[in-house]
Computed example of a mutant assay.
Amino acid sequence: MNQDLGTVVTAMITDENDKAYFVQKSGVTYRLDKSETPEALEIGDTVRGFLYESMNKEKRMTTILPKSQVGHFGWGVVTNVRKDLGVFVDIGLSDKEMVVSLDELSEIKSLWPKKGDQLMISLRVDEKDRIWGELADEHVFRSLARIPKDEEEWKNKEITGIVYRLKMVGTFMLTEDYYIGFIHPTEREVEPRLGETVTGRVIGVSPHGMLNVSLKPRAHEALEEDAQMILTLLQQSPTNSLPYYDKSDPEEIRNYFGISKAQFKRAVGRLMKEKLAYQEDGFTKLRKK
């Protein structure tokens, strides 16, 4: 196995042509494009760079060092997904993307990353000299994370982060400023996928040094959604009215609107406050301008 692949080394220039230098490390020759060196080099000079094998199986050196290396973790962007192989991640190389094997991903393929999502990976080289992306584990994220202190400072604060771990107990995310957030299954409508960027609000700070996060809308935001739904139904009705009002049967309201009677009353109340609707003769009606 070539232990230099996926690492940063210093190697000696042994040859050159019009477009590239050729450097040697541990008896193996690598191509280094001259466009990457700010000044002319000569045979016998040494140069520092990252060693890898391109998609065309050409051994290359680059002086543009990726953050993801063997033993070093960095964020990469998902560029493609293959259900039979895994996901391809761009770590900054012009002619090579790293594959995170399906063996490291969830058995539920709907939770796999999509194009544009981000993963924190390091690199590993197998016995056939193939370079793979390797997901950062919990220890890595814990070592990066900051500890939130004042709970009151965080309460109801909106935060954005990247999902890095999926477990039965919930979803873990790393915020933009390196705090770990935990999303309990009861605090989400849909389970986020690995690598997805999500925005939620802090509902507490756990004793384990994590932010407890909810992806559900606040009560007033949910009310707005209900009110908008009822307004849309009123606008689409041929009579601009619906045969439901504050005293309608709760089950009838739930069967028709999919919400509780209390939600219905709050939503209609909001529409009436905004002078968008009114109730009359057992109907909720659209107030025309």
Rank of each mutant, 00 (worst) to 15 (best):
S26L: 04
D18A: 14
I259N: 02
D15V: 06
Q24R: 10
V190H: 11
L233D: 06
N212E: 14
E134V: 13
I180R: 12
R270K: 13
E274A: 08
L211K: 06
D281M: 06
H220C: 01
A20W: 08
E280V: 05
S237F: 15
G49P: 05
S206M: 13
T29D: 05
V169W: 05
R48Q: 14
F50L: 03
M229Y: 09
V99E: 07
S260C: 14
L41W: 07
Y30F: 15
L93P: 04
W75I: 03
L5S: 13
K115W: 04
L271D: 09
V70N: 02
A145E: 09
P243Q: 02
Y244A: 00
A227E: 12
Q235I: 03
L123H: 01
Y21L: 10
E251D: 13
S214M: 02
D15H: 09
L286N: 12
Q3S: 14
F88T: 03
V70T: 07
Q3Y: 11
V9E: 10
D246T: 10
S68E: 03
M229Q: 12
K247H: 15
R124N: 01
I64V: 05
R146W: 01
D15W: 11
P185D: 01
L276P: 02
A219I: 15
D129K: 10
L102H: 12
D95Q: 07
R142S: 14
G204F: 05
V140S: 03
N156H: 13
L231A: 05
L135I: 10
D4K: 14
D103N: 15
E36G: 08
V125E: 00
I162G: 10
Q236I: 01
W75K: 00
K25Y: 15
F264D: 06
